[in-house]
C-alpha cells in the first residue's frame, strides 16, 4: 500500500510517541490510533468477510484485542503492519463462527468441457481489455462487488492470495489446507471471478 508523503523517519518518531501514550493509557491516543488505522483495517475485514456489518464487528474485535496486546508489540515493528495482521486474524476467526449460504454454487462458475476436452462455451474476448492501470473507480467497484459474490471459501482464498499478498504456503497455513488444496482453491476462485466479470467485459452481447 502507498506511503504517506511524511518521511519514514518522522513517521517512526511519531509512531513511537503514539505508542508511549497508548501504553500510558491516554484516551486521546486510542482515539488517534482508531482514526489513523481503523480505515485500512476495516477495508481488510470488509473484503475478507464480504459484508459491512460483519466487517465492522471484526474491526471492533481486532482493535480491542490490539489494545490488550499493546504490551507485546515489538518496538521497531510497524504498527500498521501489526494491526493489519490482527485485522486479518479477526476476520478469519469471524468466518469460522458465521457460515452463510453461498449465492453461487462454485461449479456453475467453472468452465465446462465436452467429451474431447474442449470448452463447452468458448470464451469471447473482452472488449475494452481492462488494463488494471487505467480502470476507473466505477470498474473497481464492479470488481469488488463480483468478489463479494464469490462463494466464501473462494473469496477468502482470492483475497488473501491476490490482494493481501500471501504466498501459497502462507495461505495453506492460514486456511488449514495442504499447499495443493490451497493452490487449487485460489485457481478456482480466479476462474469463478473471471466468469462473474465476463458478462461485463465481454465484447458480444449474450
Amino acid at each position: 500500500m502507498s506511503s504517506t508523503p511524511e518521511s519514514t523517519a518522522a513517521a517512526g518518531v511519531r509512531e513511537r510517541e503514539l505508542l508511549a501514550r497508548l501504553r500510558a493509557g491516554e484516551d486521546a491516543a486510542f482515539d488517534e490510533l482508531v482514526r489513523e488505522h481503523g480505515g485500512r483495517m476495516l477495508a481488510v475485514t470488509r473484503r475478507i468477510l464480504g459484508s459491512d456489518d460483519e466487517a465492522q464487528d471484526a474491526l471492533q474485535e481486532a482493535l480491542l484485542s490490539a489494545f490488550k496486546a499493546l504490551a507485546r508489540f515489538r518496538e521497531g515493528a510497524q504498527l500498521g503492519t501489526w494491526l493489519h495482521r490482527i485485522a486479518v486474524n479477526a476476520a478469519l476467526m469471524r468466518l469460522r463462527s458465521t457460515r452463510r449460504a453461498p449465492e453461487h454454487e462454485l461449479a456453475e462458475l467453472l468452465p465446462g468441457f465436452v467429451e474431447d476436452g474442449h470448452q463447452v462455451r468458448e470464451p469471447s474476448a473482452w472488449s475494452a481489455e481492462p488494463d488494471a492501470a487505467l480502470v476507473s473507480e466505477e470498474t473497481c467497484a464492479l470488481v469488488r462487488r463480483c468478489i463479494d459474490r464469490l462463494p466464501e471459501n473462494q473469496r477468502v482464498a482470492l483475497v488473501l492470495r491476490d490482494i493481501e499478498g500471501l504466498d501459497n504456503e502462507q495461505l495453506a497455513d492460514r486456511l488449514g489446507l495442504t499447499v495443493n488444496a490451497a493452490k487449487i482453491r485460489v485457481h478456482r476462485a480466479r476462474q469463478a471471478l473471471r466468469a462473474l466479470l465476463d458478462p461485463y467485459f465481454s465484447a458480444e452481447d449474450r
Binding site: A43, P130, A132, R144, D162, R190
Partner: peptide
C-alpha cells in the same frame, strides 16, 4: 489473458481504506 486480467483487476480494485 482474461485469467491474468482477473488477477490484476482484483489486486488493483482493492479499497485501501474504508
Amino acid at each position: 489473458t482474461q485469467y491474468s486480467s482477473t488477477v490484476r483487476l482484483a489486486r488493483h480494485s482493492a479499497a485501501e481504506s474504508t
